Amino acid sequence: MAGLLAELRAGLEAVRPEGLLLELRQPYTGPGTAPFGNLLRSFDCPGDSAANRVRTLDTALLAPGGAVHSDMLMWSPQAPVEAVARQLIGALHAVPQLSVRLDRIPEAHREAVAFWLGRWQAHRGLLLDGEVEPGRPDQLYPLVRACAGDRCLISVHADVVVPLDTAAHRRVELVNGSATDRLTLSVRGGPARIAQVVHRPDGRIIESTSARYGEGPHTLAVPRGGLASLTITEGRR
């Protein structure tokens, strides 16, 4: 198989020496085959945000260093906007691919798509090249952390406690991909004053405040499919 893939890639590069895209689909991805492809993709799971999340993370762990792409994102035009956001959140730690006609979905859906693709673009280096800790595979990765330097993005996909270390990072993005409208935090690293901006699933800001966080449990109201951007303004950082 290695010989066949090497011959195939060499033949394709002879025809197209620059700009060659060679896609390997799950389950044809792994440490042995990853060097022969430069586009790794989740197995077919249209409309299933949980499967997209699990399969892209599985692929990234099996083939580190490759550009992992989600399966095509799809949803009903009648879906609530938080369902649209959830599709995009499920592909947040990969390269998202859309398969909806943007001219045939409601304006609220387009706003959610623009917001979440904008957030992905802004944090692309962190999400794709940062230090990723996907957590519990036996629970379908309910909490995924991507960190680099003083930045950290945590996507939450279940009703779990989210660790927030005020001494480790200055800027933290909390993505609520769960089915609840709040996040439960466990704060450590010392007390800190934090500027927090909370977004709805379509990106609209619903809260912009500054709060004092002490160590211990803390509940933050974030709508499902929404985002909380935290910046530590005073504290150990």
Results as ranks from 00 to 15, higher is better:
residue 11 G to H: 01
residue 156 V to M: 14
residue 213 Y to T: 05
residue 225 G to N: 03
residue 69 H to S: 12
residue 177 G to W: 07
residue 153 L to N: 04
residue 28 Y to R: 12
residue 207 E to P: 10
residue 136 R to E: 15
residue 114 A to L: 07
residue 169 H to C: 02
residue 30 G to P: 00
residue 149 G to Y: 05
residue 223 P to C: 00
residue 156 V to D: 13
residue 86 R to G: 13
residue 104 R to T: 05
residue 8 L to H: 14
residue 119 R to P: 07
residue 153 L to A: 10
residue 83 A to N: 08
residue 118 G to T: 06
residue 129 D to T: 11
residue 231 T to W: 02
residue 63 A to H: 00
residue 40 L to H: 10
residue 115 F to A: 09
residue 47 G to T: 00
residue 26 Q to P: 07
residue 125 G to L: 07
residue 49 S to Q: 14
residue 76 S to R: 09
residue 159 D to S: 06
residue 195 A to T: 09
residue 63 A to N: 02
residue 115 F to I: 06
residue 162 V to R: 02
residue 131 E to C: 04
residue 83 A to L: 07
residue 76 S to W: 08
residue 98 L to F: 02
residue 158 A to E: 15
residue 112 A to D: 04
residue 87 Q to E: 08
residue 201 P to F: 01
residue 210 S to W: 00
residue 31 P to H: 01
residue 203 G to N: 03
residue 219 T to A: 12
residue 161 V to T: 12
residue 150 D to C: 12
residue 174 L to D: 02
residue 211 A to K: 12
residue 4 L to W: 12
residue 52 N to D: 15
residue 235 G to D: 06
residue 121 Q to L: 14
residue 28 Y to D: 15
residue 63 A to E: 02
residue 21 L to V: 12
residue 100 V to M: 12
residue 44 D to H: 13
residue 233 T to H: 01
residue 168 A to S: 10
residue 87 Q to T: 04
residue 11 G to P: 04
residue 230 L to S: 01
residue 170 R to T: 11
residue 18 E to D: 15
residue 113 V to D: 03
residue 61 L to T: 07
residue 70 S to V: 01
residue 103 D to G: 01
residue 138 D to Q: 11
residue 208 S to G: 11
residue 112 A to Q: 02
residue 154 I to S: 11
residue 176 N to K: 01
residue 134 P to S: 08
residue 132 V to K: 03
residue 71 D to W: 05
residue 208 S to D: 15
residue 93 H to L: 14
residue 81 V to D: 09
residue 52 N to K: 02
residue 104 R to N: 04
residue 40 L to D: 04
residue 176 N to W: 05
residue 159 D to L: 07
residue 159 D to N: 06
residue 206 I to D: 10
residue 6 A to S: 08
residue 170 R to A: 12
residue 226 G to I: 00
residue 121 Q to E: 15
residue 50 A to I: 15
residue 159 D to C: 06
residue 94 A to I: 03
residue 219 T to Y: 07
residue 137 P to K: 13
residue 189 G to Y: 05
residue 132 V to A: 08
residue 132 V to Q: 05
residue 102 L to H: 04
residue 38 N to H: 05
residue 159 D to Q: 06
residue 13 E to R: 12
residue 191 P to I: 08
residue 50 A to P: 08
residue 99 S to W: 14
residue 202 D to P: 05
residue 110 R to E: 08
residue 174 L to S: 00
residue 216 G to L: 03
residue 177 G to N: 11
residue 119 R to M: 11
residue 176 N to Y: 02
residue 108 A to Y: 08
residue 196 Q to L: 15
